[in-house]
Design a protein around this nucleic acid. Sequence first.
DNA 1: TTTATAAGTCTACAAATGTAAACTATAAGT
DNA 2: ACTTATAGTTTACATTTGTAGACTTATAAA
Lengths: 135, 135
Amino acid sequence: MTTSEWEIMRVIWTLGEATSRQIIRVIGLKTDWSPSTIKTLITRLKNKNYLTDNGAARDRLYTPTIAEQDAMTDTLHQTINSMCAMCVGDAITTVIASTTLSQHDILHLQDTLTQRLPAAPETVACDCMPDNWED
Amino acid sequence: MTTSEWEIMRVIWTLGEATSRQIIRVIGLKTDWSPSTIKTLITRLKNKNYLTDNGAARDRLYTPTIAEQDAMTDTLHQTINSMCAMCVGDAITTVIASTTLSQHDILHLQDTLTQRLPAAPETVACDCMPDNWED
DNA sequence: TTTATAAGTCTACAAATGTAAACTATAAGT
DNA sequence: ACTTATAGTTTACATTTGTAGACTTATAAA
């Protein structure tokens, strides 16, 4: 899913399901994308199977095939997995330091971390290079 | 920076500076990219100003213009900022639960979270839609 | 019933990205 | 000095992405 497609998905995720009219209206409030552009994006999301529709000839309802949480988790996962395992903890810490989290989120996160601490390794090796790169 | 370009950067970041020969060799160990492809990627990274070189006519040394930590932080930041503010805490928690972090990382992260807790809001509103979308 | 509005489809086109062959020039070895 | 291996440059081409006009058709209004 590209960044523009992601924007479209966010409104559909929030509405649960939506017509192109609704999407065009809401997206139009925060971008200057033409209705045509938004229609193209919807079509592409359908082709990529991120959206289904109820088949109506008009005022068709589009529904996500993937939950927002899942999409978010997958995306984050990919981003993090593409980064140096040794450095990623630091990056996460830095970013979290400037991300607004609710009290509940923070407590939940702390809880998760506490659980992981016992089994956590002393250090994590850099994985930017294949193991045998020095041969 | 695209994902393939990112792979190139990772080896240069790790080596500090590198010749195309080194990059081609190391990348060749983990991908089947042709030397040509890797050269193209290096050129594009130079054009995008992510790399400089020492100007030698041959065996030129390429150096990153951005630190790995900064690039990682920026990338993560962008990813997170493109997501629903209300849901992102949950996604981060889920992903962290399956990411290997060192003991030190965990402690540092917990420390950061503890510091943020007092000022943390009770809840974070969804920002997927513009504020006035219901008008 | 005719008509206009707009939902949905097709077509378009530039820029970015993945992928790589061909060409040029340079340094090292003979 | 000549050859050769190869580093660096050019050119190439398909696919994806950003962006949107044009066209077709279905429905609500007149």
